[in-house]
Design a protein around this nucleic acid. Structure first.
Lengths: 212, 212
DNA sequence: CCCAATCCTGACCGTATGGTCAAGATGAGA
DNA sequence: TCTCATCTTGACCATACGGTCAGGATTGGG
């Protein structure tokens, strides 16, 4: 517990507190939903008085918006793997790995995202209509190219993407159900590896992905 | 608007009103989450005064519990198809059809279920631990038998079930996102058929399902 | 060292919400 | 027809919640 006693600068204080608040907010929004979450609960979890939280984020909505936007960024970043790949085995395989890892490391974020979309995306509808549409069309083109090059079966790229999203995010969003079906215990390291392997195996075989 | 003017009997009144309330509640809980839903909103949608709603369901929690339990029943019923089937092509194929149909016809119910599980199943945890566990083990045994009989590849039945749940429910839970990516329009009849076909094709091929 | 800017917080406020109640209306059975 | 059980509802209440504010503490720059 020995720690440098140097007082934090204003900049550092701001950064640190915003991080504390955003982390706490993500957890609380994930567990209770936007409507069920209370500012008091978020403040308690962040270890700050409620009024201090309102100093950094004027309203509950503004805080929620920031949380969702951050999650959306991660969501998109996971696709970097997709682009450089020579074919579906590497590209989709790496994408599944990346998204499964997000589900494992940031389940709260995944739940907040799911909740936002389920409730008709009240705060990020504009992102869906612009960024997500572009992103999706780009990846659909990549998949179509693989199909044209004979690297996989002629699957509708759109439904393949939906299946990838659904399957990988399921391990976060429905993690509680999976845990219950696992005897109440979280998945072990080995079980996570088995999950990833199963998903990759079924999908890659299912789309007839051929090694480069 | 001409209608039989026969006054409803007490029994009919009760049935009718409970149905109105449950239908309205499912929609509102799906759109706003438990915390975001208000009793007033449910009452308005059902066309009843709030106090009347409380006459039939004493608390918001009791109403929510009933909604979730009803959904759970449908969820289980969809599996009837599974059991009689001679092999994975028929069994899993029919299960996918059934669950996709639920996603299409009762998206609100699917969302309420997803929300409940995401929030650690505060009201149906006991069902998860008993009924769902049994249900899952039964189906895993069926799948294992198909594997042993050489009717499909040696896939981990557990992860196959998760993939089936994830993929089919995704079309309800993330329906708004899918709609946005479809130019803001709901999926047409043909598009639903294409979705079903894609899902079935990828999964059945992915698990190496062989015709009987 | 001083003053301005930033940060912190207990106390407070208006509102919305879940739930109650008492009194009346309506249908069922004798 | 009379009586009882069930159904209906406007008015009401206590509470919890999001958000405000005034004033104090702390840091930074000149």
């Amino acid at each position: 517990m020995v720690q440098s006693a140097r007082p934090l600068s204003k900049k550092e204080i701001r950064q640190e507190n915003e991080r504390l608040i955003l982390d706490a907010a993500e957890k609380v929004f994930a567990e209770a939903g936007f409507g069920g979450a209370t500012v008091q609960l978020i403040a308690d979890l962040a270890g700050l008085p409620k009024a201090n939280l309102h100093y950094y984020f004027p309203t509950k909505e503004a805080l929620y918006r920031q949380v969702v936007q951050n999650i959306f960024q991660d969501w998109l970043k996971a696709a970097d793997t997709f682009d450089a790949a020579p074919g579906p085995v590497e590209g989709i395989g790496a994408y599944i790995d990346a998204k499964m890892e997000i589900s494992r490391r940031h389940p709260a974020g995944s739940k907040v995202w799911a909740s936002e979309v389920m409730h008709r995306a009240p705060v990020i509808q504009d992102y869906l209509e612009t960024t997500l549409v572009e992103w999706t069309e780009d990846r659909m083109r990549v998949i179509q190219r693989w199909i044209d090059d004979g690297k996989m079966d002629p699957i509708d790229p759109r439904h393949l993407l939906y299946m990838l999203w659904a399957t990988t995010q399921h391990y976060a969003d429905f993690g509680h159900q999976i845990e219950t079906l696992n005897g109440g215990k979280p998945l072990s390291e080995d079980q996570w590896e088995a999950a990833k392997a199963s998903v990759k195996s079924i999908i890659l075989k299912g789309i007839g992905a051929r090694e480069a």
